[in-house]
Write a protein that binds this DNA or RNA. Structure first.
Lengths: 220, 220
DNA sequence: GATCTCTAACTGTGATCACAGTCAAAATCC
DNA sequence: GGATTTTGACTGTGATCACAGTTAGAGATC
């Protein structure tokens, strides 16, 4: 007779949440560009719904600073300054480092296969110059690592940072000429996880998170 | 002619945001108890507004998991399980530790005076058995430390964790008989900041964050 | 030609309504 | 008396409207 709270106990079945999740992924993969304006009515027409679910979704995104909402002006995608981006990547490094260290104690062989598949997808997307697919696979790879911690709070906070840095990263990637060794870093992380070397996984993950800052310093 | 984007460029002037901030503080200081139900219409009447601003505020809080929203059921304050609370306090330890380490490099004498004043307020609130004031001063003390980092993203993520652990902490505090040495810990943190000892500040702050977990283990 | 002014389209915001699903207590049946 | 059904109050959700503040472009003015 105990209440099955944990199952089906979310509000992901309504229109607001669908629109929220959709826009969130568009931000993560960089389909929405920095400084892009989002109008409630335009989006409502695009999605074929009324303004109501859209305005709730936009307000949610503004709550987590994934969008900027001003008094009577259109919502828009933040156009990050260098200092702001540095702050975000610093927090990412702190949280992702801690997550990777825990994940190294809990990873199994099936997880490693999944991670390698995502790394492969990143490689392919890079060859095709498909920044959107590249960031999507990058997000899924990292997200799988965090899910291994079993700490939902940690996972959702990191995801929130990906939403905020996505448009900025996409803008940086398309302007990038020299891919450098970012690909190699991910394989190193997977190797560290395979060796269950938590300290190395932490260090490598922290370096990976700071890659975004280096990206900015190179292209402005 | 450059755009003064940073000033007045927030949506804190509308009703939704006022209600959101108000409820958020009620959660931080524990005025809202775990498992409490929040009805849109009831709150709207209480605040003297229509249902519209309230529903947006509740949805925002649900977005950051400060409230639970189910399909057609009333929003309610989460009643944290032991594992969930542990997860939250772990993230708090990670973020607060990193924040304290940075703060130690930026603190000045005026900041130290402010911090001691908040520690004093906590002491007084404790004597009066006023859990709400106690948590409010505790939040302000910690919040001031994070503000020293100059990292707004870091600060807002930590604050979000206080919103989620507030009701749970308040419930634990009122059932507590032995105050132990929590007070002393805060003075130690302030001392570490005064010595500009970042490593010590980090360690002490991490211990402080884990105090919440110990609290749970003692009273269930 | 450059500057200013006005106007018309666009912005989010709050209120109100209808609707469908939830839940608990009251009424009914066995 | 106990189990079952019904009913009515309550829940969030989506649509629609009126309103006020913003913004950019057309047109007038100098």
């Amino acid at each position: 007779m105990n209440d099955p709270e944990s199952t089906g106990d979310d509000l992901s079945e309504n229109l607001s949440s669908k629109i929220y999740s959709g826009l969130r992924m568009e931000l993560i993969v960089g389909d929405l560009k920095p400084a892009a304006k989002l109008s409630i009515r335009k989006l409502a027409e695009k999605f074929g719904v009324s303004a109501m679910p859209v305005r709730e979704a936009l307000r949610q995104l503004a709550t987590e600073h994934a969008l900027i909402g001003a008094k009577k002006k259109a919502y828009r995608v933040p156009d990050l300054r260098s200092a702001e981006a540095s702050n975000l990547f610093f927090v990412r490094a702190v949280l992702e480092g801690a997550a990777a260290e825990i994940a190294a104690q809990r990873v199994n062989n099936q997880d490693l296969e999944i991670l390698e598949r995502f790394a492969n997808e990143m490689e392919i997307a890079w060859q095709k110059q498909d920044a959107s697919s590249f960031l999507a696979s990058n997000f899924r790879l990292h997200s799988h690592v965090y899910s291994l911690t079993g700490n939902h709070a940690l996972q959702s906070m990191i995801e929130s940072l990906y939403v905020r840095t996505g448009p900025w990263l996409a803008h940086g990637i398309v302007n990038l000429v020299n891919p450098d060794n970012w690909m190699g870093e991910h394989l190193e992380i997977i190797d560290a996880l395979r060796r269950r070397d938590g300290a190395a996984a932490r260090r490598l993950m922290e370096e990976d998170a700071e890659w975004g800052v280096h990206l900015y310093n190179r292209i402005g």
